[in-house]
């Protein structure tokens, strides 16, 4: 009975939407990012989208040629695509390096962030103690640590993976924690009334309830991870897309430079679409 009381915090049961901590807007609420990615449906919409794209890209091409803008200032879209195709074999390994850093660092950071969020939200006192440090990790650009990490660990994967984990982990944690704090006492009581254990309540009520915010955290965390991976590569070392950016710009090979940026943009968009899709699947009930 004592454990029952602790679980329910023994407050007077209240229901409804009032006082739901998840409703309060705080720094960790990035849900705006997860909103509408409208799915294209009709042929007319497709046509309009294509038309605008052609206008922008074609217009850019035209203007750059018309005013004879030098390639070292701004290459034309056709030059960029040409460089992407021609130099892709040279760039491809670097894409692989960046993805390895991103995926490894994100997997480590996200796992730690999720688990920590799940644990600390069960102990409000512990949460209060570590909250300032998490905030510090979230707000400090982890890029700033990269020179130090390189000093200690050399120019390999290690400092970059650590930087990615440090950048993405706190993002995942702070958003997941917001999700785990959305305690609906009535739903926990429901499970408890059928005899659910604390673990069952965690698995069947708390985790699904937190899922929408966890996915927002994963999305924001992975995009921060990408930024940090590229930034860390620009700081030092000899491989990765960030390194290629500094390399090509130092040689004033701007078409190749922009080809790398195009690849980074595509990685970023893929991340967004992936988590949008995951959100639809696992957290669509909230939309």
């Amino acid at each position: 009975m004592a454990s029952v009381d602790r679980e329910l915090k023994d407050t007077i049961p209240t229901f409804g939407k009032g006082g739901d901590p998840a409703q309060t807007v705080d720094i960790s609420n990035w849900s705006g990012l997860a909103s509408e990615l409208s799915l294209v449906k009709t042929g007319a919409e497709w046509a309009a989208i294509l038309l605008v794209a052609v206008l922008i890209i074609g217009g850019g091409e035209l203007l750059l040629r018309l005013y004879e803008v030098p390639t070292y200032i701004m290459p034309t879209p056709s030059q960029i695509v040409g460089a992407l195709i021609k130099d892709f074999p040279a760039i491809a390994p670097h894409v692989g390096h960046t993805l390895v850093e991103l995926l490894t660092g994100f997997a480590i950071g996200a796992t730690i962030g999720f688990v920590l969020a799940a644990i600390i939200t069960q102990f409000p006192f512990a949460e209060k103690i570590i909250a300032p440090y998490v905030l510090l990790l979230v707000t400090t650009p982890m890029l700033a640590l990269v020179p130090l990490l390189i000093l200690k660990l050399g120019f390999g994967y290690a400092p970059r993976i650590i930087a990615v984990a440090l950048a993405s982990g706190p993002m995942v944690m702070i958003n997941s924690a917001t999700g785990f704090r959305r305690v609906d006492l009535a739903k926990i009581a429901l499970a408890r009334s059928f005899g659910a254990s604390t673990l069952q309540i965690f698995l069947k009520i708390r985790i699904p309830m937190a899922m929408p915010m966890v996915i927002v955290g994963l999305m924001v965390g992975s995009i921060f991870g990408l930024l940090t991976a590229v930034g860390a590569e620009m700081v030092g070392g000899s491989f990765g897309l960030g390194n290629r950016l500094t390399y090509y710009s130092s040689l004033i090979q701007m078409p190749q430079f922009f080809a790398c940026i195009l690849i980074l943009a595509m990685i970023g968009i893929s991340i967004y679409v992936l988590f949008y899709w995951l959100g639809k699947r696992w957290a669509g009930w909230e939309a």
Binding site: F15, G16, A186, K187, A189, L190, S193, I205, P208, M209, M211, A283, W285, E286
Partner: peptide
Amino acid sequence: MVFQEANLLPW
């Protein structure tokens, strides 16, 4: 128990 506002799990 039957709760206020049905208390179904929305997911």
